[in-house]
Design a protein around this nucleic acid. Sequence first.
DNA 1: ACAAACATACCGACTGGTCGGTATTAATCA
DNA 2: TGATTAATACCGACCAGTCGGTATGTTTGT
Lengths: 194, 194
Amino acid sequence: MQQRSEETRTKILDSAIKLFSTRGFNAASVDDICEEAGISKGAFYHHFESKQALFLALLDGWLQTIDSAIDASKDKTAPETFMQMTTAFPYIFETAGDGLPMFLEFWLQASRDKTIWDASIAPYRRYHKYFTSLIKKGVAEGSFVEVDPELASRMIVATAMGLLLQSLLDPKGAKWEKVARESTNLLVNSLLNK
Amino acid sequence: MQQRSEETRTKILDSAIKLFSTRGFNAASVDDICEEAGISKGAFYHHFESKQALFLALLDGWLQTIDSAIDASKDKTAPETFMQMTTAFPYIFETAGDGLPMFLEFWLQASRDKTIWDASIAPYRRYHKYFTSLIKKGVAEGSFVEVDPELASRMIVATAMGLLLQSLLDPKGAKWEKVARESTNLLVNSLLNK
DNA sequence: ACAAACATACCGACTGGTCGGTATTAATCA
DNA sequence: TGATTAATACCGACCAGTCGGTATGTTTGT
């Protein structure tokens, strides 16, 4: 009973990621998602209250992934954490084709839909705080030079997002994975106290 | 006769910016735009072949604005040009409320719609080249330190876009105009040969 | 008078969502 | 264990409304 149900739910989620990514939230119809998942509309609305609820479920899963990634680097030093991020970049840009446009979709919906915004803004601010405290910690450790942690945090996030966006628009315009790695190196280097 | 016609066209363009920004390309219907502009559907389709054609006209105007801005700083030195951009930030973030979401909308549509992508990608690559040569020039002048101009260009654009995006998601989360100015200072400073 | 500019009524395709009904599985009990 | 009941999972026709776009008619400036 739960077996089949769970599978259906997963199929819907996967199809939604695929279609939201390629066509966008509005253009991807519920019918499309059902067809892609190979299920009926009834099954869809059995599992999700609405199209928006499905989107929120997707967002939730994404945020949980980030959370657990952050949690994994809890006990490391500030520079170590940043270095770990550098190693994560290849993976991110490799799997970009599938999930990355979803990131833009989250952003866009959040900027328009109050419910989705509420679900996004709290984690975003949490991440910002996390980065800020990470840099603060690095400064306290003496491994980072004196910088405004707030500002540095915004800039790091900005760089990451900006590169993601550029790679999205022009995937073949550059070796993005390499650009991302070198950028991180450059940023961390300018932070490091030598 | 031409007078009124021109006015109608402008009204459509203005209303489109407003509605595309607030609701997005898909959600903003032609009927909505007509109502906002205070004109009829017949008038709309008299001026624009399709909804997409209107979007392309908007994109074109935006690109021209950027082009002329770039053109204006043709004969200045590299650091001067960057400094000029710093002074432009307050204006950009002031008027962000209106036109900024349109920028995201352009991006999103370009990543999905082949026609719009074609119209976007050429200018984007031109801007990237411009930045790259600007940095190259700065290095040649001796005013910039030795950096990979390609990489630095991507990073500068990334930072700008990332900050814009963050300000879009969380307008009241920070004094974005200040963050942008300080970020530019920081970036230019790390580029400057002292 | 004649063409450009605009208005109105309308079309067919498609939308998110509903609903009555049917399989499929789990729980109950003889 | 095997039949019965109840709950869950699923189906697909259907609805009211919206969409971009068109056909046709009217106004306006020259």
